[in-house]
Design a protein around this nucleic acid. Structure first.
Lengths: 124, 124
DNA sequence: TATATAAGTTAGTCTTACCTAACAATATAT
DNA sequence: ATATATTGTTAGGTAAGACTAACTTATATA
């Protein structure tokens, strides 16, 4: 288990989400999605590649490895669970829920995630 | 509205909690509570004092200003709400809930907090 | 094909928030 | 009262993760 930082989780999740929308992921797409500057992305993607979480070569596309994808999906799952709970059950405004979910997604233990998902299924 | 970092919120909350238990707060108490080293605390408390969130003089006690206390209470309230939700409603294990709450407390919007509290009141 | 624009990289800087090692002050115990 | 232990401070270091400025590569257009 890689033990990723929030920042790394954000990158992986972004790449995952962008890929589902656009099939191909560029440095600038990630920058836009995370609202940060290009050089920060270049550097981060290099590091993720060193950790075998992404595949990247200069000026090319960014891809997730299967390991990277697994982590990305895990984070995304947490995001979705929290977002659904906030909007459907607490009836928090969409924009607020989105912001909160983007932060809370990094702080959910496996146990809480599991129980949250079950709770949503029952109460929705 | 001061806009505090997570770290600053942690310090304020710690000071607040310790004060309720011990009446007097020392640098070492905070270090123990947050599980960090003394010099980190000294430095942080200096900064908080510069921001008028704490009152401190070398080798003395640490106190919250009313401004600092307000922030501390706000964080503590979020912590309690999340912890209660996790333990009472999701039935997450105490230790897990505590860990999760310590992280999530920094990422709850005012709107979500408010709605979470109402939800707990109704469903408990 | 030459050139302008967009995208990406490199180098260097900044801030936050920790740390260790060494030293200083305070409190405690003999 | 002095030695010792505890607590706190100072100085300096490190890592993560962002940034800007300057440069390079790639792409698009005239």
């Amino acid at each position: 288990m890689a033990n990723l930082t929030k920042s790394e989780e954000d990158y992986l999740e972004s790449i995952y989400v962008i890929q589902q929308e656009k099939k191909v992921v560029r440095i600038k797409d990630i920058a836009k999605h995370l609202n940060i500057k290009l050089p920060s992305v270049t550097e981060a993607v290099k590091k993720l590649s060193q950790k075998s979480l992404t595949i990247y070569e200069r000026y090319g596309y960014v891809q997730l490895t299967s390991k990277g994808k697994k982590h990305a999906q895990e984070v995304f799952k947490k995001h979705q669970a929290v977002f659904t709970f906030l909007t459907k059950i607490l009836r928090v405004k969409k924009e607020t829920a989105l912001k909160d979910a983007c932060l809370i997604e990094h702080n959910l233990s496996a146990e809480t995630l599991e129980k949250l998902i079950k709770f949503i299924e029952k109460n929705n």
